[in-house]
Simulated assay, not measured.
Amino acid sequence: MRVLLSIRPVHVENILQGIKTFEFRRKIFARKDVQTVLIYCTMPIGKLVGEFDIEDILEDAPDTLWQMTECGSGISKEYFDEYFKGRDRAFALKIGEVRPYKEHVAPSELMANFTPPQSYMYVGDSRHERLSGRQLELF
């Protein structure tokens, strides 16, 4: 199973460059069979730009999670603290293999009435096959 995540352009760039090796989330998917993340780069890009495998999912108190992920966070401690402010649990996806798409794809080409998810959206294999068939040429 795949999940689509909305990620800001600066973080997408850091993921694609290998600087950011953890993607932080306030909540995590209920399904345990999610293995791949489709990267939706938020506006002004507004397109699917690649995907990555989930190597691991870490969960802990925010301060403990920061200690475990700081080197691959790609963000400042202040940004991290603000993101998890008021939370007693925090999640980090350990980013495995990253596959940028040669051509970015408008989500509306794959999904009618697409609205970017606030946290995540499950993407069935049939939708992804339409994408993979023409997109898995890497940079």
Rank of each mutant, 00 (worst) to 15 (best):
N113P: 02
Q17H: 14
R87A: 07
E55M: 08
V12P: 00
D56M: 02
I75K: 02
I39S: 01
V3E: 04
M68G: 01
F52H: 00
K77Q: 14
M68D: 07
W66K: 05
V123T: 07
P62A: 10
S108I: 07
V10S: 12
Y120L: 06
L131Q: 10
T42Q: 05
A106T: 09
H11K: 08
R130M: 13
G46W: 05
T69Y: 09
I39C: 01
T64A: 11
G124V: 12
Q67V: 09
A30R: 14
G124Y: 14
S126W: 14
I7R: 00
E137S: 15
V49R: 02
D33F: 08
G72I: 01
L38M: 11
Y101R: 13
D63L: 11
S119A: 07
A90S: 13
Q67L: 15
S126Q: 14
E129N: 14
T21F: 00
K94W: 01
K77T: 02
P9W: 01
F29N: 03
M1T: 05
G18M: 02
D33V: 07
R31V: 02
K94S: 03
R8V: 07
H11A: 11
K20A: 03
E78S: 11
M68W: 11
E13L: 15
R99L: 07
P44Q: 15
I28Q: 04
R26F: 07
L131F: 12
S6Q: 04
V49D: 02
L58N: 01
R130H: 13
G50I: 04
E78Y: 01
H104E: 09
I57V: 14
R134A: 08
L5P: 01
K47L: 11
Q118C: 12
F91V: 01
F29W: 06
L136E: 13
R127N: 12
P100M: 10
G18Y: 04
M1Y: 04
K102I: 14
K77E: 13
I39Y: 04
V49K: 02
F24V: 01
T69G: 09
G96D: 05
I75T: 09
G124F: 13
F139Y: 15
E129K: 14
Y40W: 10
E103C: 08
V105L: 03
L58C: 04
S132A: 15
V12G: 00
G86L: 10
D33Y: 08
E70D: 09
M68N: 09
I28P: 01
M68S: 09
K102Q: 14
T115N: 10
F139T: 15
Y40K: 04
D60K: 00
N14W: 10
V37T: 03
P9R: 08
S126F: 15
F91Q: 02
D81K: 10
L16E: 03
V98C: 03
A112R: 08
P107L: 04
V10D: 10
M121R: 10
K102W: 13
E137H: 13
G133S: 11
F139A: 15
P116G: 06
P107Y: 03
T64G: 06
K32W: 01
E82Q: 11
K94A: 06
R87Y: 11
A92V: 06
Q17Y: 08
L16I: 06
E23G: 00
E59Q: 10
I39N: 02
S126T: 15
